[in-house]
Structures are given as C-alpha cells and as structure tokens.
C-alpha cells in the first residue's frame, strides 16, 4: 500500500523528466545525425570539427561567456557580501532580483535607448563636454549588458550560501586573531564556493548562446553559437547541423557541470 502510494508521487516527476528533458535531448541527438536529404550521416560532426568558421565561433562563444561570467562574479560577490550584512537584507536582495521580472527583450530595447548615438548616456557625456561615443555594437557594451542581465542569477546562490554561514565562524576567526582580509579569504570565500559554482553553472551556459543580445546590442558583430543555431533552423532549414551545434552546447554544459561539481562530502545527509 505505502509503496504504491510512493510510486504515485513519483509518476508526475518521471513523466515530466521523460517528456521535457529526456525526449527533447534524444530528439536533438537523433536529428544531429541527419543531413539535409534526411540521410543518416556523421558528416554534421565532421563539418563542425573541420570548419574553421564553427571552431572560431565556438572559441568566440566560450571567450565571451567566460568574460560575462567573470564580470558578473566580480560584481555579484562584493554586492552579495554587502547585502548579507545589511539590516533589511531581504528587501535589498528583492530589489536586485526585481529586474528579472522584466522581459529580456524589453531590457535589451531599454539599453538601446540608453546607449544609442543620441541616447541618454551620450547626452550625459555631452553635458560634461565629452564628445559622443559609439557604444552600441561594441564588444564592451555587449559584455556589460549581458553581465547586467546575468547578475541576479549569480547573486542569488552566492547570497544564499553567505546567509548560511553561521556568525560564530566569523567571530571565531577574529577571536583567533585573523584579520578581516584573512577571514574573507580563508573562511567566507571557501564556505561560499558552492554558491559561486552554482552561479557559474547558471550563468555560463546561457551566455554561450545569447543570440538576441548579440544581434540587438552587438549588431551581429559578435557571432556566437546561438546565432548559428538560429540560422540553421530558420533560414537554411538544415536542422541536422543546428542540432549538432545543440549537442555541442549540451556537451559543454556537462563539462562545465563536471568542473564545478560540488562534492558535498556527506555534510548534509
């Protein structure tokens, strides 16, 4: 009786997993083995790994995703640290999360308004006598806007792991004569490592294929794998090649997961 009841609870979860996780991934892998004539082939993978274009694109994607991730850590970590010490920290963290309630596309268009030639930022520069700068369609603006969009997803896990640290550890370290810097590097950072790692997992992968942003803010001068996937599915209708790039993205996700795998060492269970 009890056992079958338990099975009943598992069913929705298993169904969900099968329909929305396993089936799509299986389909992507299946499609990646077919060329435009619907013939079974490995040529998509050969093309991918032999073509300078796709490899440069992969390198570009990884480089930009890396920079976006690093910048969002650099901004998020001190921010999370400060917020976790504040009095009304729940309110402050809510304010940081707030922008995620706004659609990505709207945020991108807002940035166009800010960064464009006659936009707010250039007007402000003009006020201080700085000549108008070209800001849209540059690498810097692309990375900064992408980092801005990813920051909430980086802050949250770091903040949560910080609030998990019991105050007694901090007090103990200062009692034992550690400087504030030593407390930070020896106690806080190691203890928030799981938070940083899950932040990286959440930020790095989507950053590999930000095709909307690379077009709107980057003006397609930055080509990432997402751009290629979009093109293969919508323009050339070469679903096989598009899926192959999808598989490469999935594999890189697995790699990132493995590298940032947090071994819990049975602390919690």
């Amino acid at each position: 009786m009890k056992r079958s009841f338990k099975g009943l609870f598992y069913t929705p979860y298993i169904l969900w997993l099968a329909m929305f996780v396993i089936a799509p991934v299986a389909l992507i892998i299946y499609y990646s083995f077919f060329d435009i004539h619907h013939q079974f082939t490995f040529s998509n993978y050969r093309v991918f790994f032999e073509s300078g274009t796709y490899l440069t694109m992969t390198a570009n994607s990884v480089l930009y995703a890396f920079l976006i991730t690093v910048i969002s850590i650099l901004i998020s970590y001190p921010m999370a640290l400060v917020i976790s010490k504040l009095k009304h920290r729940d309110l402050w963290i809510l304010l940081v999360i707030l922008p995620t309630w706004i659609n990505l596309l709207l945020k991108a268009y807002a940035f166009i308004g800010l960064l464009s030639h006659d936009g707010l930022v250039n007007n402000l520069f003009g006020f201080f006598g700085i000549p108008a700068q070209q800001m849209l369609f540059t690498d810097t603006s692309f990375i900064l806007v992408a980092a801005y969009i990813q920051i909430p997803f980086m802050i949250l896990p770091i903040y949560n792991s910080m609030t998990d640290i019991s105050d007694s550890y901090i007090r103990a370290s200062s009692d034992l004569g550690a400087s504030k810097w030593q407390t930070l590097t020896k106690i806080i950072i190691p203890m928030t490592m799981p938070g940083i790692k899950s932040g990286i997992q959440i930020v790095f992968i989507p950053s590999l294929s930000l095709f909307m942003l690379s077009r709107l803010i980057g003006g397609n001068k930055i080509i990432t794998l997402g751009t290629a996937v979009e093109e293969h599915f919508l323009t050339t209708m070469n679903w096989g090649m598009g899926s192959t790039i999808g598989v490469v993205l999935i594999i890189s996700m697995v790699v990132v997961m493995l590298f940032t795998n947090t071994k819990r060492k049975g602390r919690r269970s």
């Binding site: 166009i112 464009s116 030639h117 006659d118 849209l136 369609f137 077009r215 709107l216 003006g219 397609n220 001068k221």
Partner: peptide, 18 residues
C-alpha cells in the same frame, strides 16, 4: 564600414539616425 548587421530593428535605428 559595417556598423551592424541587424534585422527588423534596422528601421528603428535608421529612423533615429543611428
């Protein structure tokens, strides 16, 4: 010479004199 390669947004950019 290419400033950007964009889709529909090109209308907005040109109208704004970008």
């Amino acid at each position: 010479n290419v400033k950007a390669v964009v889709a529909d947004e090109i209308k907005m950019y040109m109208a704004e004199g970008e």
